[in-house]
Simulated assay, not measured.
Amino acid sequence: MDLPQPVIDLDDLTLRRFEEADLPEFLRVIDESLEHLAPWMAWTTEHTPERTAEFLARRGEKWESGQAYSYAIVLDGAIVGAIELFRGEGAPDNSREIGYWLHPAATGRGLVTRAARAVAAQAFRLPEVDWVEIVHDPANLASGAVPARLGFTVHLRRPAERHAPAETGEDQVWRLTRARACAD
């Protein structure tokens, strides 16, 4: 099985596998981003240094098993966010999902769009993957702009399992198929 690349260089932007040694910097970036993320990301209510350490400690095992490929988004040598390609809970084996977030000082520059484009390409390196999805709350217009720019199409809306304070309680699911990605 082909695995996604552990480091993806995009000129001034780098995506690289998380390491346990990233903990101090990653904690700082999360802490500085909590106010920005809390309206949209339910996990922020449970954020603790211990949970983040546990998250990083499991990245190697998840990578090797194919369950999740987690990348630090690095700009000018500093972590500014995270992006992950993962197999959603209960999702078919032939699909993957992309999730992402950025430090508020790094938003509005197309960084997540560039990162998501690169991660979607990595998803299609996996021979079993037929489609990739990006899921967000419909009220989160910034998150929804990313799949729209990348040629994903709206697939469906469904009730959200968890939601954060600004969210509507629905998930907007965007999908990019292998056939469409290869045609572009």
Rank of each mutant, 00 (worst) to 15 (best):
A181K: 04
T153S: 13
W131V: 01
W131A: 14
E89L: 15
E20L: 12
A145V: 02
R180T: 15
L150C: 07
V7T: 12
R178H: 01
L111E: 00
R157S: 12
P49D: 15
L10Y: 01
A116H: 05
T44K: 12
G66L: 10
A38I: 04
A105L: 10
E64T: 12
R109A: 11
L141I: 12
G169W: 03
E35S: 14
L111S: 00
Q67N: 06
G90I: 03
A118I: 09
S143R: 00
V129G: 01
G110I: 04
I134C: 04
R114Q: 13
Y71F: 10
A82C: 15
W43C: 08
A72I: 04
V146I: 14
R180I: 10
D31H: 09
L156R: 15
A120E: 12
P39F: 15
R125T: 15
P39M: 15
A181L: 02
F26E: 07
L150D: 09
I83V: 14
P147N: 06
G60W: 00
A139C: 07
H103P: 00
E89Y: 13
F124W: 02
L13V: 13
G99V: 05
M1G: 14
A78D: 09
V129N: 01
L75N: 06
H47Y: 14
L3Y: 07
Q67C: 03
E61Q: 12
C182I: 07
V74N: 03
A121N: 11
I8V: 14
E167V: 08
G144N: 01
A116D: 04
A164V: 09
